[in-house]
Amino acid sequence: MEDHGPLRSFGRLKSRPIKPRQAALMEALLPEIRVPQEAFDPRALMPGAAEVWLEIGFGGGEHMAAQAARRPEVLVIGAEPFLNGVASAVRHVEEQGLSNVRLHDGDARELLARLPDACLDRAFILFPDPWPKARHHKRRLIQPEVVAELARALKPGGRLRFATDWANYADWTLERVLASGLFRWEAERADDWRRPPLDHITTRYEEKRLGDCAPVFFDFVRR
């Protein structure tokens, strides 16, 4: 990824005071499960991990924690700049006793830049901020340079799942991911993207249906 100066995460990084218990976990547990601040090999974080997954923008951490609990042999790395979401995720990790979760409390693009080539088996981008106004589309996470970085970090055959409940963002993402030539989309019928994948975990945010369409799920495969 080219160096364009410091990255800027748009939107609020904190919305309300963090609850005392979560604040205590942020002080005590987060430093233990935070990913390194320099380039690193994810496999070194959990030797013997069967796979390495990345969730970008994990929100409150519900999906990330549930996937990690379901697959304890998989290292799950999560990235989220929103501090309240990080606090919530740390609580999930502690309450469920998850030893296979590592967190980056910052912009996912910073994390991607520190990952080696072909180190990820799966990546999730679920219901990212849609920035629905046209003048804000440049703030959307899905941009050609991010698609290229995801392709670089994913192994050949690795999978990228994108979900949104905003029709324009669905079209935007499909166009940019396929235009990269780095991924293929294996959907054969409408149900392949209209219905949640079998291993999907619905979160409270998704249930709110804040978008303008029913949830759309795209599973892309790294060429």
Rank of each mutant, 00 (worst) to 15 (best):
M1K: 11
H4R: 13
H4G: 09
R8F: 12
F10Y: 15
F10C: 03
R12H: 14
L13C: 15
P17D: 06
I18E: 09
R21K: 15
A24N: 13
M26P: 07
E27K: 14
A28I: 14
A28K: 15
L30Y: 11
P31D: 07
P31T: 06
E32K: 14
R34L: 14
E38D: 07
E38W: 02
E38K: 13
E38H: 12
A39C: 07
P42E: 00
R43K: 11
P47A: 12
P47D: 09
P47E: 06
E55M: 12
I56D: 05
I56L: 08
F58W: 06
G60H: 06
E62Q: 15
E62H: 14
A66H: 13
A66M: 11
A68D: 01
A69I: 01
R70Q: 08
P72E: 05
I77C: 05
G78K: 02
A79W: 06
P81Y: 10
F82T: 09
N84P: 04
A89G: 10
A89K: 00
V93H: 05
V93E: 03
Q96H: 15
S99Y: 07
N100T: 05
V101C: 11
L103D: 03
H104W: 12
G106Q: 01
G106L: 08
D107T: 00
D107I: 09
R109I: 09
L112I: 07
R114L: 14
R114N: 05
A118N: 06
F124I: 10
F124E: 03
I125Y: 00
I125P: 03
F127G: 00
P128N: 02
P128Y: 10
D129P: 00
D129K: 12
W131F: 14
P132Y: 03
R135N: 03
P144W: 11
L150D: 04
P156H: 01
R159K: 13
R161I: 02
F162W: 01
A163I: 01
T164C: 09
D165Y: 08
A167S: 14
N168E: 13
A170K: 06
D171M: 15
D171R: 15
W172Q: 02
T173Q: 04
L178K: 03
A179D: 11
F183H: 00
E186V: 04
E186K: 08
A187Q: 00
E188W: 00
R189C: 06
D192Y: 00
R194F: 08
R195A: 15
L198S: 15
H200R: 13
T202I: 12
Y205C: 08
E206V: 11
R209Y: 06
L210R: 11
D212Q: 08
P215L: 11
P215Y: 02
V216R: 15
V216A: 15
F218Y: 12
R222E: 05
